[in-house]
Design a protein around this nucleic acid. Structure first.
Lengths: 211, 211
DNA sequence: ATTTGCTTGTTGTTCAACAAATAACTAGGT
DNA sequence: ACCTAGTTATTTGTTGAACAACAAGCAAAT
């Protein structure tokens, strides 16, 4: 009905506009946080990078806090997606753990939104925010997931029977978290060799001895 | 010469006064940071808690940055002292690693200044500060130390020969860093069981198989 | 009497939050 | 297809709070 003639200079529906601006504001915020830290993510800077004004983000998310919460929600969904990419169900327990570690570390080097997530987490550690609860929860979820894989691996006989499943899960989770922190502190760090040797070491440490 | 009679209402030398105020300002800053995060460590709050005015810290350390740097220097010395308490040289390589982990985790639960250190580190992750370099350096130092212990353990035959020494060191370092982060995010967390099972798991993973 | 330690007054900056104005869409009537 | 009134999205103007930094004065030591 409406003419799409004349390379029409944009005629978007309201909810389109809304969705797009919201999404771009969050993307801009994530980029700024990943690149320059949380302090750089002022409404001014976010608006500018997203191509909007400084006022819009407040309007949309109510407050800085609201913006950050929305961002974290978005990042969690995104990261969940990244880590679920490889179908862990098809691997045995040990390989599934290694695949998780592998995917995690690969993305950490490349994915800006993933880095933004850990920068925000560091912020929650440094500042006493109400975000601590959610982040603690997220840890717990990851570790439960890893623990399940350990247990499955033991049932399958591919993971050392003596291994304490929840301790092992905690160790792997902490390892990844610690490596993330180190990478963010020293962005020049090359994760490739670390990824490879971590996998080797984990396989040797967790794997059931052959024979 | 000066009479120490009469419970004298303080007659301290200038450099005493200076040293004391400096030390108390740093202590106050560390406490605030450990308890309430870096944002709570304003000159106002630090001065109040230390029993001085808001102006003194600026005077002493020149700037906020200067204060933080002085604080980090102090904390590094203090932590170094804590971790060196047990003479690692008398233990074999494997036991020395475990002792390091043990002492680290014990102190993490109790020592406020140690927690302040990691809160500051999280701040450096979250904010892009010039403190990143020093913190990265500190990691490297710890990991070199751990690597040396692994190598010694292998020479002594108490650590698995197949273990990649620097990967193992990095893993232990990251584990401790990750656990620190998790503790700070969830202060209710009980490190005792984690400490114990971490030690057990590390011994099983790193130790040379008997016989 | 003078240096050194410490405090109080003040300034300027940064930034989130709110409010009021403008621009872009939507729907109903013609 | 227009035009219009109403609604929703977006911008710009402004306020106030927080805080580090500097300076000038007061207090305590030598």
């Amino acid at each position: 009905m409406t003419s799409a003639l004349k390379a029409s200079p944009a005629r978007r529906t309201q909810s389109d506009r809304r969705q797009q601006s919201e999404s771009e504001l969050l993307r801009a915020a994530a980029e700024l946080i990943a690149e320059q830290g949380t302090a750089a993510a002022t409404f001014e800077a976010i608006g500018a990078r997203a191509g909007y004004s400084r006022g819009l983000a407040t309007q949309r998310f109510g407050s800085k806090q609201g913006l950050i919460e929305a961002l974290i929600a978005r990042l969690q969904v995104r990261i969940e997606g990244l880590l679920d990419a490889r179908p862990l169900d098809e691997l045995d327990g040990l390989e599934a753990i290694l695949a998780f570690v592998d995917v995690f570390l690969r993305n950490l080097s490349q994915d800006q939104e993933m880095r933004a997530y850990f920068v925000l987490m560091a912020g929650a550690v440094a500042e006493v925010s109400e975000l601590r609860g959610p982040f603690a929860q997220a840890h717990k979820t990851v570790e439960l997931r890893l623990e399940a894989l350990v247990l499955r691996g033991q049932a399958e006989g591919v993971v050392r029977a003596g291994l304490n499943a929840d301790a092992a899960a905690l160790m792997v989770g902490s390892l990844l978290l610690g490596l993330s922190t180190q990478l963010l502190i020293d962005p020049g760090m090359d994760l490739e060799p670390i990824r490879e040797t971590s996998l080797t070491t984990l396989r040797a440490s967790f794997g059931a001895s052959p024979k």
